[in-house]
Every structure is written in C-alpha cells, then in structure tokens.
Computed example of a mutant assay.
Amino acid sequence: MSDLGSDGHYPEQAGIDAYGNGGFRFAGMSHRGSLLCLPTGMFAWPVTVPAEITMESLAPVFAVADDIDVLLIGVGPDIAAIPRELREALRERRVIVEAINTGSAIRTYNVLLAEERAVAAALIAVDKVR
C-alpha cells in the first residue's frame, strides 16, 4: 500500500527508513513497489526488473540531472549491469552512476543524503532483506 498519494509522489527527498516485502518506508509512510528518490521528491517507479531500466524509465532522472552528482541504482537482490548507452548518457550529463543491489544502494543513498550531497536513487523493490 502506498501513501504517496494519487499521483505517486511525495514532495520532498527523504531518507529510506526500511525496505523489503516489496516496498519501502520513508517519511513516516510506506510505499509498495519500486521508488525514485530525486531532489524533487519521492516517486512511484514502475520498474520491477533490471531489464526495465531504460532511458524512458529514467526520464525523471534525466529531467533533474543538473541537480544530481550521483545516481545510485538499486537493481534488486543481486548485481545486474546497466546498459552502456544509459551509463554514457548519464555521464554526458555529469552524473556518476553506481548500479548495486538495492540494500547497498539504500545504505549509500542515506549516507550521501545525510551529508547533503546531490544524490538520487532508483530503487527496485525487493521481497527479502539480506
């Protein structure tokens, strides 16, 4: 169940308090499904597997790329490669991309956010926490 509202958006960037069971907890609410954490807020993200990470699914990231230094992509429970052309397109926008498992992405995102760094995260929901 999502508390993100009918538009699937929470208006502020927030740290992730918990994850697993197919969703995330942040800002005192819960969201089932994958999540984009951007400087413009938290957004429901329809991606469920790494193969769905495309230029189109990351369009909201590209829209705010000038405000991001680092994009952490949580690819689920395991490691998966991000297409080279996607990495290159983000690099052209001066965004560093790190694709790692969702748990590691959340931990790194929370640290960088607490340090007030220009960080964003694209997180595929996972069922089990490792």
Rank of each mutant, 00 (worst) to 15 (best):
L123T: 05
M42P: 04
T108K: 15
S30M: 00
W45C: 03
I53M: 03
F26Q: 00
V64I: 15
R93S: 09
A99Q: 07
L90E: 03
V70Y: 14
V75M: 13
K128V: 10
S57A: 10
D127T: 10
G28S: 06
M1T: 13
V95W: 09
A118P: 04
A44V: 07
R107A: 10
E56R: 15
V61N: 07
L36I: 04
A63C: 02
V129W: 12
S57I: 06
P50A: 08
T108D: 12
G103S: 11
I16K: 05
R93A: 10
G20L: 04
K128S: 10
A44G: 09
A120H: 06
P60T: 03
R93N: 06
A18L: 02
R32F: 05
D66C: 04
K128H: 13
L112A: 12
M42Q: 11
L72Y: 15
T54Q: 05
E116G: 14
A121M: 03
A27E: 00
I124E: 01
C37R: 08
C37D: 03
S57D: 04
I16V: 14
M55E: 14
P60M: 00
S2P: 11
S30T: 00
R130K: 12
Y10R: 01
C37M: 11
I124T: 03
V95H: 04
L86E: 01
Y10A: 00
I96K: 13
P46D: 11
S57E: 05
F26A: 02
Q13M: 13
G76L: 05
E115F: 06
L113S: 05
H9M: 00
R117V: 10
G33I: 02
V75F: 09
D78V: 14
M1C: 12
P39D: 04
I73R: 04
A121Q: 07
H31I: 00
L112V: 11
V119F: 09
V61T: 05
Y10W: 15
Y109K: 04
A114Q: 14
P11T: 09
R91A: 12
G20S: 09
T54G: 06
V95Y: 02
F62N: 04
R107V: 12
R25T: 06
I100Q: 13
M55W: 08
A27I: 00
E12L: 14
N21K: 14
L4F: 04
V70R: 15
I68S: 05
V97F: 07
R25P: 01
V49S: 12
N101G: 03
R94G: 01
A14N: 02
R32M: 07
I68F: 08
E116D: 13
M55K: 15
D17H: 12
G41W: 04
P11Q: 15
R32T: 09
T54M: 02
D17I: 00
L35F: 01
Q13E: 13
A118D: 13
M1P: 12
A65Y: 07
E88N: 11
Y109L: 06
G41K: 05
N110W: 08
G23E: 09
E116C: 11
G28C: 02
E88A: 09
N110Y: 07
L113T: 07
L4C: 02
F43C: 07
T54C: 01
G20H: 10
M1W: 11
I106Q: 09
G103P: 03
E85R: 14
D3E: 10
C37E: 03
V61Y: 05
T40L: 05
P77R: 15
E56S: 14
D69G: 10
I106F: 09
Y109C: 08
